[in-house]
Nucleic acid binder design. Sequence first.
DNA 1: CCAAAAGTGTTGACTGTACACCCATGT
DNA 2: ACATGGGTGTACAGTCAACACTTTTGG
Lengths: 213, 213
Amino acid sequence: MSQKEFLNPTVVVDIALFTVEEGELKVLLINRDNEPFKNTRAIPGGYLLKGETTRTAALRVLREKAGIDEVYLEQLYTFDAPGRDPRGPVFSVTYMALVASPLPETKQKEGVQTPELFSVKKIPKLAFDHKEIVSYALARLQGKLEYTTIGFNVLPKFFTFSQLQNVYETILNKTLDKRNFRKKMEQLGFIKETKQVLGGMRQRPAKLYTLGK
Amino acid sequence: MSQKEFLNPTVVVDIALFTVEEGELKVLLINRDNEPFKNTRAIPGGYLLKGETTRTAALRVLREKAGIDEVYLEQLYTFDAPGRDPRGPVFSVTYMALVASPLPETKQKEGVQTPELFSVKKIPKLAFDHKEIVSYALARLQGKLEYTTIGFNVLPKFFTFSQLQNVYETILNKTLDKRNFRKKMEQLGFIKETKQVLGGMRQRPAKLYTLGK
DNA sequence: CCAAAAGTGTTGACTGTACACCCATGT
DNA sequence: ACATGGGTGTACAGTCAACACTTTTGG
């Protein structure tokens, strides 16, 4: 068997980045400015470069394309269907990213389209198999929400109970009972109360919580 | 940015193949007959060849190395840590495979080590990061067992309730109550009764069930 | 008739769900 | 004083867990 028979595919990293904003679960999309799929929306992604792991490549892509530094990243799946990229065999190692809103302002850079957030309920046509990637990421996020602390990655370090509940309601796309939610969270033991409160609103100040027992 | 900067890694496919045999969850290992890690156990794997997807490569590897044709395959994770293969950047796209026991007899082939089943409780030192791959596969299998039909892949098409329970007990590594198990399975609706029974044992014949409502 | 696994219900504990009012603050 | 979200308990229903005996076959 000669070396020639091996397939050394080009590898790209594509990232489904979610955040919760205005009571909606949103995903970050860019507008492609190159063929193929020019002027079609896509999730941010880029080629894997020498010396990178897929994870560091994902972090670089998010920094370059969206100015995002602090982010939760989880590898999802490797998409390798033949023909998924018209240019040839390109493997996409996909990641889910979660960040707290608001995202940093992206200064308009040369040759880089400004990324935009779209509600997952109103996703436009996407390039390549990116629709499938977003669906996969969403299923994973929803699946892990209830038994892990993954949801806390879209919250600031200190948060109120209603902010937390809003995250759960938004990601699961259903309303939850306030008292039952509180009971469940308390018994799961993911969060601890702080001595801080969030005031300045025109209602009773809310206690601030943080992750960790 | 020149084409030279892209990393086009070599890609291998590694498979954690499980079966349930003699009340134990077993994983298929081969003995490596080449460097690196010569004479160390490893999970079956092989290079991705031109024209293959990782899935078809995994199927080919299982056919070539273990004579296995019919198999459940699920992609797990892509391992890309630098240095995971001393020869250079090699990405491993990993799969979990499940088959019913007994496995087909593997005719001893030239240059191919006979694969052997090992209890997951007694896994020897493994090559590369294969220990991590097996752990990951096991966690996935256990996690999906209770809310999917993944466990049925280690059973023949027709099976008795106690065979089914044995699979669950073995994979979860704990004993289950017979009546509660039956109730839960019946209400999950994964299985349907057939008109066949499995006799010939020196005890009361057991009804045979099959997957599907 | 004995050995072996098949098959079958009930009870109490626990967990999840539904539901309504008072509280603390800013304006 | 009022508008706004913050914060709290109870009762019912459904699910889960524990538990032992009878049945059917082969030897």
